[in-house]
Write a protein that binds this DNA or RNA. Structure first.
Lengths: 112, 112
DNA sequence: TTCAAATTTCGATTATAATCGAACAATAAA
DNA sequence: TTTATTGTTCGATTATAATCGAAATTTGAA
């Protein structure tokens, strides 16, 4: 059983979080997790191969944005909403709202 | 007279803004501009050489975060607060507030 | 027209990151 | 114990970015 690194709430840093959320694919993952709650890695709908998705989920986990727990062969991913709201009040809601109507989202959902 | 590119309000994109603000030096610049209003490039207090500062200011300008106007030999830089608040309500205030007590700020102001 | 001040651009270096496919690892089920 | 499922790691490629010092540019002043 592998143990997965998650930073403590106090070790979640602003620039790291902003960097993690500056990637459209990761914004899409965060948006989906926010809407549906917990999801297995493979059930998150993203337009990249699984190894790339794995990399993005790791980035989100190591920056403190998501929690990952192991259940059988699956990894269940969920937002660390509470920790983020305590650490950076208002940040996540404003980003989620902005992403809803963003060109980033449109482009990812309407592949040419 | 050189003309400086500034994106229209509608062309300011979320991921670009988050990426621009994920750099601690640029967070410091934005924080200072927010506090003091307009500033000449050279009067912005940052722990990097002028060519690097120039690069960061350009990144902020091209992402739509700051406005730069020419006055004599100086370039006066200021926040596009209004445009950002319309485009991404609540985003900038939450980032500025988070930066105030951040480790990023502490490290930049307390050089070892 | 020459000089000084403010800032940008250029070239080089170093580092980091997104992406993919293939191989690997862990677990559950047959 | 073999097999299928789920996800990670590895290696390679390609791209982007932060940084600096030196040279160039722009403008105002002497």
């Amino acid at each position: 059983m592998k143990l997965l690194y998650h930073p403590d709430q106090a070790d979640i840093h602003l620039s790291t979080v902003l960097d993690a959320l500056s990637d459209p694919i990761r914004l899409l993952i965060v948006s989906e997790l926010h809407n549906v709650g917990e999801r297995a890695c493979g059930d998150i709908n993203v337009p990249v191969v699984k190894s790339t998705a794995s990399h993005h989920i790791r980035t989100l986990r190591e920056s403190g944005i998501v929690n990952v727990r192991v259940q059988g062969t699956q990894r269940l991913v969920s937002m660390r909403t509470e920790d983020l709201n305590i650490r950076f009040p208002g940040l996540l809601p404003s980003i989620l709202e902005a992403f809803k109507n963003s060109e980033e989202k449109r482009k990812l959902m309407n592949p040419q």
